[in-house]
Simulated assay, not measured.
Amino acid sequence: MTQTVLVTDDDLEIRDVIRIYLQNEGYRVHEAENGAQALELIGREAVDLIILDVMMPVMDGIKACFKIREMTSAPIIMLSAKSEDIDKITGLTTGADDYVAKPFNPLELIARVRAQLRRQTLAAVSGGKGTDKSVIEIEGLIIDKKRHLVTARGKEISLTPLEFSILELMASHRGQVFNIQKIYQSVWKEDKFLSDNTVMVHIRNIREKIEDNPREPQYIKTVWGVGYKIE
């Protein structure tokens, strides 16, 4: 089944380059010039992944990402001419799954697209399989793996697909310490580890959502110098 990618960027040349590479990989491609057009298209078309530029007229990528997350859990890859950590953190905090700084190598972007779609497909296929309990309960935190639903102290928590996968990974292996590289390889399904703080940002986002006090987390514990675990 052909997968559909939405490319959102106000630069026609960039859209053309990305479209050509995606089509060469066999993907169906939709295009939008700004966040407002992207939202309109997502409202009427099924989209498997969104590539979203940060700086755009009418509606920028940050605002669009917030609204897209209310409509679909499809992976979002943010593009930005800025490579500072604060821009990366902002993009990931809004619900994006990955971040690529401009100028970028189109082949690397395509590799990121493949990785995100592969991870999503594997999650869908394995959702109801295996002998693991489909519902994990940890002191007021309930993770329903089949329904991709999380509640904390009776309140439903909205997590992005990657946030859910990270939480599920650690909750399914209570007591095991995961370093950042292991989390990246297990969740992103990529052997190549990117030397950035992507995983740390996702962990911080999860804590903000599920913890009463993220500075003194009850669930996701930091093992200093090693990684993270759920006891």
Score class of each variant (00 low, 15 high):
G127M: 06
R114D: 14
L141R: 03
G154C: 08
E168K: 14
L109D: 04
Y99E: 12
H173G: 05
E163Y: 04
H148D: 06
S134K: 14
G128F: 02
L92C: 11
V150I: 11
K133I: 00
G127Q: 11
L109P: 08
G91S: 12
A101K: 04
S172V: 05
S134W: 00
I136F: 02
E156S: 14
L162E: 09
T160V: 13
E139N: 14
G91I: 01
T121R: 04
A115F: 03
F164C: 11
V100S: 07
G140V: 04
H173V: 04
L169Y: 05
L169M: 09
H173Y: 05
S165A: 15
R114P: 11
I157M: 13
H173C: 06
L109V: 10
L122G: 13
Q116E: 14
I136M: 04
V177W: 00
I142K: 09
H148F: 04
R119M: 12
L149N: 07
A96K: 00
R118H: 13
Q120V: 11
I180H: 06
V125K: 10
A123R: 09
I180W: 00
T160P: 10
A111Y: 03
Y184N: 12
Q181I: 13
G154N: 01
R147I: 01
I157A: 09
A152N: 04
N179P: 09
Q116D: 06
E168T: 12
N179A: 08
E108Y: 05
P106F: 01
S186I: 07
L159K: 03
G128T: 08
G140A: 03
V135K: 07
Q176R: 15
D97P: 09
T121A: 13
D144R: 00
Q185F: 07
R119C: 12
K145N: 11
T160I: 08
G95W: 01
A124F: 01
D97N: 15
L107I: 10
R174A: 13
V177C: 11
L159W: 02
S134E: 11
F164D: 09
A171Y: 08
G175C: 04
A115D: 03
R147H: 05
L162S: 14
N179E: 09
V125F: 06
G140W: 01
L149I: 08
Y184K: 05
A96V: 06
F104G: 12
S172G: 14
D132T: 10
Q116W: 00
E108I: 13
T93A: 13
S126R: 08
T121L: 06
